[in-house]
Design a protein around this nucleic acid. Sequence first.
RNA 1: GGGAAAGUCGCAUAGUGGCAAUUGCAACAGACUGUAAAUCUGUCCUCUUCGGAGUUCGGUGGUUCGAGUCCACCCUUUCCCA
Length: 295
Amino acid sequence: MKTLYIIAGPTASGKTSFAIELAQKLNTEIVSADSRQIFQQMNIGVARPTIEELNKVKHHLIGVWSIFDKYNVSVYENQADEIINQLFQNKDNVVLCGGSGLYINAVINGIDDMPVCDEQIRLQIQNLLETKGLSHLQELLKEKDPEYYAMADIQNQRRVSRALEVCLQSGKPYSIFRNQKKKEKNFRVRFIGLERDREELIFRINKRVDEMIDLGLEQEAVELYPHKELQALNTVGYKEFFEYFDNKISKQQAIELIKIHTRQYAKRQMTWFRKEKDIEWINLSKSTINIDDIL
RNA sequence: GGGAAAGUCGCAUAGUGGCAAUUGCAACAGACUGUAAAUCUGUCCUCUUCGGAGUUCGGUGGUUCGAGUCCACCCUUUCCCA
């Protein structure tokens, strides 16, 4: 049976180097599960592995997609599946490494097939939201899909909008597409979670942000500034610089905010991963784990 | 030395007689099936059998049925004149 080793955990926990070491031991390659490192145009701010690191082990799904093209979990699942299956033809093990919980979940369990929605409908809903407000969308959803309405996070405009999008596109309730059946994947999973003590994680985050600044994050942000409205750039490390460029905050404040927002992001990641029951947690603050021990 | 302004729950801020006290941030906990580094929710003085109970607004006194709000003095900070 083929095995997919998943290395997950909050940002700055040390996933990259851990995954490289593991992949070298297993003589295999790494597939990224990172919703931002996928983009060509983002590098420093998304903490991509360095050139040296990328040369040690072959990485997939890093810097392969343009910020100008639509991207989502479904696309990711297809790409990741294809690469993983291909790698399994010659290898018994593959390493999946990243911090995007939903993406990892898509690789493990698959994601329901949904109708493809055209841009028109999304814009229409977006427009409704702006002109008539969330409550109007809620009413619409209640009418189109009472079942989902009853269980959904109605306050979350993203959830409500997406559900409506599917309803309007298909003419059917969103719920009927959400069977949430696990897809059969032809590999087994070793799910490893990397964590750190809070203080140490904060220290590592702060240090890494400072390093990003030294590496030229500001310049990278300058280059991306014209496209700041793109969803891909609604990203910690860039959006704060955009605020600075807009003269809303000082550079010092921007840097401080990047640290804070990264911390909060790490916390959300932990919330996500904590609910995953099959994770074998390794606290890197407490133990210096020998990779051979987990093989 | 003289004058002015200000001190509110981690920080910032609202509050000029009915207030456990506004709002933002941070923090903490959580949700998450196609925007996910996104988006959203709850808690946030203490205790609680969640009905409440007890202590709060620099300090000490006072006025008042009632004081963060009014008065007196004191302490601290900032600014202006020396």
